[in-house]
Amino acid sequence: MPDIFGIPPQALFGQLLLGLINGSFYAMLSLGLAIIFGLLNIINFTHGAQYMMGAFTAWMLLNWLGISYWWSMLIVPVVVGTFGVLIERTMLRHLYKLDHLYGLLLTFGIALIVQGMYRDQFGSSGLPYRIPDALRGGTDLGFMYMPNYRGWVVAVSLVVCLTTWFVIEKTKLGAYLRAATENPPMVQAFGINVPRMVTLTYGFGVGLAAFSGVLAAPIYQVSPQMGADLIIVVFAVVVIGGMGSIMGSIVTGFGLGIIEGLTKVFYPEASATVIFVIMAIVLLLKPAGLFGRVR
């Protein structure tokens, strides 16, 4: 096959796939942040730590109890989501009437605690997680060789993102959620238990982060820091997309992943910073974000 812009197609598509995978995680994590922010008005700084907890919980289930990847995909979001529910019930709940900044500070503190505890227990070096047998090997797509697990990650995250979008935008439950985002006292007056909805929403957002962690475990090393740096990039993604729209979060997440992948091909030195540069440009041109509304 001929080179594309002087780059061998294998390298180009390989990086595109990596970009898509990173984009999958950006999309799922920024989606969770956006849902939580919509209802709780809190930026969940613990999101990265909860993603890391997801990966570690899957690792512990596999290596200590022999529970497979497939069961982990079900169990882990529930376990970590419950942890989220506990945080919301015992701590976050008391901050809703205060300045938003306190929510940020509290979740930052929780992230420090969680990361510190995992580092104390498991050390800083990464732990490997075995790719499940059914997803080992790869497929020749004609224009590139695709490792099966990577294709699986992109597919699953697309399904998860679109399902979440569907539930929020097209179902009755989602309508309640959107209504409570706009005007909580009004929805409460219609007899819907808004505090419980808030709790469950936080739990769901956290569960989504944990689910991303399970997906990430076989690709990246499972380490206590895996979420900390990722979450800062996800914050930039959220600033670029604006948190007003669910589909906006998904599109921005995948889009930025692809752009980052392409940057790795054409100008590798900038690949770590390209998303931040894009954020700066978006702030100059469209301060509310690509899909954002000014509140």
């Binding site: 922010f37 930026i43 938003h100 900044l101 940020l104 740096d229 800062i232 990039v233 914050f235 930039a236 959220v238 600033v239 770590a272 910073t273 998303i275 931040f276 540069v277 954020m279 700066a280 702030l283 100059l284 301060p287 509310a288």
Partner: peptide, 23 residues
Amino acid sequence: LAIRRQGIYFSMITLALAQMIYF
């Protein structure tokens, strides 16, 4: 750049730009 957004966004923008300087 950062004062173009308020509240929580301001915090996230400063954090992201600081990460850029870190890299």
